[in-house]
């Protein structure tokens, strides 16, 4: 008797997948964003087959050539093919975005959970830290951190994460404050669940929707900030095909070869727009109350 009911593991997920897909397809922002990102993703994955040349192959006889046949987006001052560099650069942009979001997400979500669940002194200390981080201009703070850590893409990613976790912390904190007084959490406490277990089994899973939305909304910012620091010469170092590096090299030839700056800029806009639209679309379908 016991085995008949016992062998069936819980299968259904809280939201069934198919209706969710239909809702997603009905959201214009989400669809456009997803298409833009799919293009970037495919380019990044198949960069070797798509790029006509290696990103660092120089051709000194063809320097600063305008876009034309054979070199669709022109060449830079070393005769490197801009199209190939932009294609390889998409890998850096995506990787940077994802890594930064994961670091700042883990940091912000854990601090927000602690502050919201425990309240009291922990809350006051964490909120103080959050407010300070929030109040400082992010790029200036990131510059300061990179100056201390030294230039390089990894340090830039750490710096960007350290200045942008506050948004997660604030939202998760207020969500956790609301959840901790819900009857199902009180019931858990009355059963003798530990604080850790309450945070991870009861509160965190009920913030997943929110986390997905915040993460996708902060991805474009992360990419933009790292590009900006690379542009300032603190992030990826030449000859890395980082879009920020390409932009900053191109700026010197802005009058003679404007295409050197325009195309990486467009690639950046394309990617950031894709993430922004995706994020806003996700927010609308996962957490309509957050709609500003």
């Amino acid at each position: 008797m016991a085995s008949t009911g016992g062998t069936r593991p819980p299968r259904r997920s809280p939201m069934r997948v198919w209706p969710l897909v239909r809702v997603a397809l009905g959201n214009g922002q989400l669809v456009v964003g997803a298409i833009l990102l799919l293009v970037v993703l495919l380019i990044a994955v198949f960069a070797e087959s798509l790029a006509p040349r290696a990103y660092d192959a120089m051709d000194l006889t063809n320097r600063l050539r305008a876009p034309g046949p054979g070199m669709l987006l022109g060449t830079d001052q070393f005769g490197r093919d801009t199209l190939s560099r932009i294609i390889y650069g998409s890998r850096i942009a995506l990787r940077v975005g994802l890594i930064v979001v994961v670091i700042e997400g883990v940091l912000g979500v854990s601090l927000g959970l602690l502050a919201g669940y425990y309240g009291g002194l922990a809350d006051r200390m964490i909120s103080f830290l959050t407010d300070i981080t929030w109040a400082l201009p992010p790029i200036v703070l990131a510059l300061a951190i990179v100056t201390v850590l030294g230039p390089g893409l990894n340090n830039v990613m750490i710096a960007i994460a350290l200045v942008s976790w506050a948004g997660y912390a604030r939202l998760i904190r207020s969500k956790a404050q609301g959840l901790k007084n819900m009857p199902f959490v009180e019931a858990a406490r009355a059963l003798g669940e530990s604080d850790l277990s309450i945070m991870f089994r009861y509160i965190l899973p009920n913030t997943f929707g929110l986390i997905v939305v915040v993460a996708s909304l902060s991805l474009p910012g992360a990419i933009l900030s790292t590009t900006a620091l690379s542009f300032l010469g603190l992030g990826s170092q030449p000859p890395a095909p980082d879009w920020g590096v390409i932009l900053s090299e191109g700026i010197r030839f802005l009058y003679d070869a404007p295409f050197l700056s325009i195309f990486p800029g467009l690639a950046l806009v394309w990617t950031v727009l894709g993430f922004t639209l995706l994020g806003e679309g996700l927010r609308d379908i996962l957490d309509p109350r957050m709609k500003a």
Partner: peptide
């Protein structure tokens, strides 16, 4: 606490929305 049980007023929020009833 093991020797006590509690039933709350609002049944809709008394169970973890992310867990199946069995759990």
């Amino acid at each position: 606490r093991r020797r006590m049980g509690i039933v709350f007023q609002d049944p809709a929020s008394s169970l973890n929305p992310r867990s199946p009833v069995r759990a």
